[in-house]
Design a protein around this nucleic acid. Sequence first.
DNA 1: TTAATACGATACCAAATGGTATCACAATGG
DNA 2: CCATTGTGATACCATTTGGTATCGTATTAA
Lengths: 106, 106
Amino acid sequence: MTSQTQNAFRALADPTRRDIVHILARQDMTIAQLTDQFDMTRAAVKKHLTVLSDGGLITVETRGRERINRLEPMGMAPVLDWFSYFDQFWDDRLANLKEAIERKAK
Amino acid sequence: MTSQTQNAFRALADPTRRDIVHILARQDMTIAQLTDQFDMTRAAVKKHLTVLSDGGLITVETRGRERINRLEPMGMAPVLDWFSYFDQFWDDRLANLKEAIERKAK
DNA sequence: TTAATACGATACCAAATGGTATCACAATGG
DNA sequence: CCATTGTGATACCATTTGGTATCGTATTAA
């Protein structure tokens, strides 16, 4: 019953998780590496990663005893889709974002 | 301490609040009118409106004994700004997101 | 084989969240 | 004036959330 849109919005509602997303945008990381970036235990980071995974925002690849956490940009699509409902209202911020995306896609 | 970005993300994390935002996008409404749209008490709707107001997503105009709740589209700017952070990182993953966004456009 | 490493899972806790019920109060209309 | 309407505020409740501590397990290294 919890939609992908809801899971994605929920995942992004926490500042730590948004930080994790930004960090993973630069570089894939194991849980231990991510934990080094925050002032909390590995268990807490793991919980955040689970929520991010439920939201479709990251994927995990098992490599030996390590788990490589990787950003899944497509997970943000439901959120951006939700915002597109407002095309009639705003000042073309989304249009700018779209343009930037298309520009870099070339 | 709680940033505007955090307040906005938090406000949008709840499905009822996202529904309220969509409803207010089409028409300004009083609390009573909004309550008619949901299966919950006026007090619950009022709480959601407070969170939305904290997030800068709506404004309230007092008119007589009524309070007109109005969408504040600019309140979404911090959220979109957060997403724009990825402009500098997205490379080949970008094509996929671009596709997703354009699929929604049709 | 044995020890260290990287992680999962669970129990537990305080605080936040989403809801109700209820009372108070200002504005409106007869 | 007085009843009604529209709302705010608060106390209260169950559940979720974000965190720790702890133990178990699989993989790697010595």
